[in-house]
Design a protein around this nucleic acid. Structure first.
Length: 194
DNA sequence: GACCAGATTGTCT
DNA sequence: GACAATCTGGTCA
């Protein structure tokens, strides 16, 4: 079942938690590529110093201020893209960063996109999974409740969720807004900020 | 396995 | 003009 827009209108921290175990799927011309979400981070709009949106709306982060259930794809570090899911209603810039996946389908396509073959190395990081699934900045603002890029409800919820502070940020490090599946080998190696 | 530097460009001050 | 929600490949152990 594709997660409906109402799923993303729940409180953002709940969405981040509940996305664990769900399946992110990209229907490409070459075939489906999908993975199970094993790590997420919440970004809480104007209240959150680590969020792109804390200083208000700009051209870059405009999608975060829009409707829940859209994709926010941004470019960073001169060479990487990251994929987020927009939460909350229009005017409230909250989103969940997808940080890691466990590869399920289309693994040969992932290996080609990533130009590497280690299963453990295909999707264990936000920029890695974007590359593996073939997500591009053209998908910024795309609706993820229909179309080629969708998220499907978890079929298995028998895992423990762990939290930590977020990775790769210098502000807002006091919040424990990173969620990941305990003992899952596909979680990123990123070191929490605290 | 842990730690470190370099890559590389869009975006905001 | 500085820096970024990162990754990779190097060195050293």
């Amino acid at each position: 079942m594709i997660l409906p827009q109402s799923f993303y209108q729940q409180p953002t921290l709940d969405v981040a938690k509940q996305l664990l175990g769900a399946e992110l799927r990209h229907q490409t011309p070459e075939g489906p590529i999908s993975g199970r979400i094993v790590e997420t981070e919440a970004y809480m709009g104007s209240l959150d110093l680590a969020s792109h949106s804390h200083r208000g709306q700009t051209q870059r982060n405009a999608v975060m201020f829009g409707q829940a259930g859209r994709a926010y794809v941004y470019f960073t570090y001169g060479m990487h893209y990251c994929f987020n899911v927009v939460c909350a209603d229009e005017g409230i810039a909250e989103a969940v960063l997808i940080r890691a996946l466990e590869p399920l389908e289309g693994i040969p396509l992932m290996e080609r996109n990533r130009k590497t073959t280690g299963l453990r190395n295909l999707c264990s990081g936000p920029a890695k999974l974007v590359q593996a699934l073939g997500i591009t900045k053209a998908m910024n603002g795309q609706d993820i409740t229909s179309g080629s890029l969708t998220i499907h409800a978890a079929s298995d919820r028998s895992f423990e969720v762990t939290t930590s502070s977020r990775v790769g940020i210098k502000q807002g490090i006091e919040h424990q807004w990173r969620y990941f599946i305990k003992d899952n080998p596909f979680v990123s190696k990123g070191k929490p900020s605290v």
